Simulated assay, not measured.
Amino acid sequence: MTTTDQDWSRPAAMAIPKDGYFELERGRYGPVFPRTPACYGFTIIAKVIPGREEAIREHGRTIQSAVEANPNVLDPLKLHFLRWQLFPIGDDLYFQYQGIFDTDFDKYTEDAVMLFSQSGIATTFENLEGFPEDWRDRPEGFVEFVRKHHVPSFLEYGEYPYVTAQEIKKALTLKAAFSTMLDQMQ
């Protein structure tokens, strides 16, 4: 499907092959996964270093505080949403990260490394077993970790497919301006 075929006005679903792509295309850090009706994204599931649960929860509060202080702090990531979960498997604790964003994986990774390196906000991934200590200097190590722990989707759905976060914000800004204009006309 090309960009011109991507109609935002009709919900769309895409079944994704087991390998995560339809045709192997290599990016800077490995296979390029397709843009789906939900845009781009990835999910990882990784084991938490024992004793680090509270550090992960605290990091969630740190991100909340950073966004409250500066609502645009995560803008470089072009996020639609993030979801973090902690859950037990046997005697171990695991962390699940789900992110949907507008850029391809390579760009997202480079932007995340840059953002966290410059902002002083560490990544919560530092609390996961096997995460590279040199992630700030070596984005490919970050990528290797994510790809090793990535659990690909096999179906993605979009109620308003292929629409970027910026397009959604523009539409809502226009809606608010139009509503204000109509209110003033009464």
Score class of each variant (00 low, 15 high):
Met14Ile: 07
Met14Tyr: 09
Met14Gln: 15
Ala15Val: 14
Ile16Glu: 15
Pro17Trp: 06
Pro17Val: 09
Lys18Thr: 12
Lys18Ser: 10
Gly20Ala: 10
Tyr21Cys: 11
Tyr21Gly: 12
Phe22Leu: 09
Phe22Asn: 10
Phe22Val: 08
Glu23Trp: 00
Glu23Lys: 08
Glu23Ser: 11
Glu23Pro: 00
Leu24Phe: 06
Leu24Asp: 03
Arg26Asn: 13
Gly27Met: 01
Tyr29Ala: 08
Gly30Cys: 08
Pro31Gly: 05
Pro31Phe: 03
Val32Pro: 00
Phe33Asp: 02
Pro34Arg: 05
Pro37Gly: 09
Pro37Trp: 01
Cys39Trp: 01
Cys39Gln: 15
Gly41Arg: 10
Phe42Arg: 08
Phe42Tyr: 14
Ile44Phe: 02
Ile44Arg: 07
Ile44Thr: 14
Ile45Leu: 06
Ala46His: 01
Ala46Cys: 09
Ala46Gly: 13
Lys47Val: 00
Ile49Gly: 04
Pro50Gln: 01
Pro50Asp: 11
Gly51Ile: 07
Gly51Arg: 08
Arg52Asp: 03
Glu53Asp: 11
Glu54Gln: 15
Ala55Arg: 08
Ile56Ser: 04
Arg57Ile: 01
Arg57Ser: 00
Gly60Asp: 02
Arg61Tyr: 04
Arg61Leu: 13
Ile63Phe: 05
Gln64Ser: 08
Ala66Pro: 04
Ala66His: 05
Glu68Trp: 01
Glu68Asp: 13
Ala69Trp: 07
Ala69His: 13
Asn70Asp: 15
Asn70Phe: 03
Pro71Trp: 03
Asn72Trp: 10
Asn72Tyr: 11
Leu74Trp: 10
Leu74Arg: 12
Leu74Gly: 00
Leu74Phe: 15
